[in-house]
């Protein structure tokens, strides 16, 4: 199991760069069909709002850490599409850190509202417009969504 994340006095995960998430490791962002829009040319694309931090103190953008899924004995494509999420994109940790984001580990325990996710991580940063544009233009498919296009994908980015 990965080294536990740092916690604040209230027990919340503190934004951090996790030592075991290396530059070439991929982080996966699940995409819902609710986050798909049609662009001016009629193509279906992922909305910029798919790339934002969750609210609250210490809130970052939720992701799944591919390496931790594999180390946990699960199959990444299946993990991030179970039970109903239709697709996902990925970024290399090195690319995200180059945009001044931090990538940390934040395992989620099961509650009455959500299942456990021991491979959950967060991406912390300001999510400025420039950063969101960079995320949109450099996302790579992890689980493609049929008939949805990515913005000018850079094929060699995901491998760091």
């Amino acid at each position: 199991m990965p080294t536990p994340p740092p916690l604040d006095a209230a027990g919340a995960v503190v934004p951090h760069d996790h030592d075991e998430i290396e530059a070439g490791d991929r982080v996966i962002r699940r995409i819902s069909d609710r986050q798909i829009v049609t662009d001016g040319a009629g193509a279906r694309r992922i909305s910029s709002l798919a790339y934002q931090a969750s609210g609250g103190a210490n809130g970052g953008m939720s992701v799944d850490i591919e390496k931790f899924i594999v180390e946990g004995g699960d199959e990444p494509e299946q993990w991030v599409t179970t039970p109903r999420w239709i697709g996902s994109v990925c970024f290399s940790a090195g690319f995200l850190r180059g945009l001044q984001f931090q990538i940390g580990y934040h395992p989620i325990e099961e509650t009455s509202e959500r299942p456990a996710n021991p491979y959950h991580g967060e991406v912390w940063g300001t999510f400025s417009r420039a950063q969101k544009i960079a995320l949109q233009q450099n996302a790579n498919w992890f689980v493609p969504i049929p008939d949805v296009e990515l913005d000018q994908p850079l094929a060699d980015q995901a491998t760091g």
Binding site: V37, T38, D39, G40, A41, S47, Q52, S54, G55
Partner: peptide, 20 residues
Amino acid sequence: QIVPGSNGDLQLEWHMPNED
């Protein structure tokens, strides 16, 4: 087009051939 955010927020979007 209306996209939900993760925090209970939302985004209104208009995408035209030369303008977003």
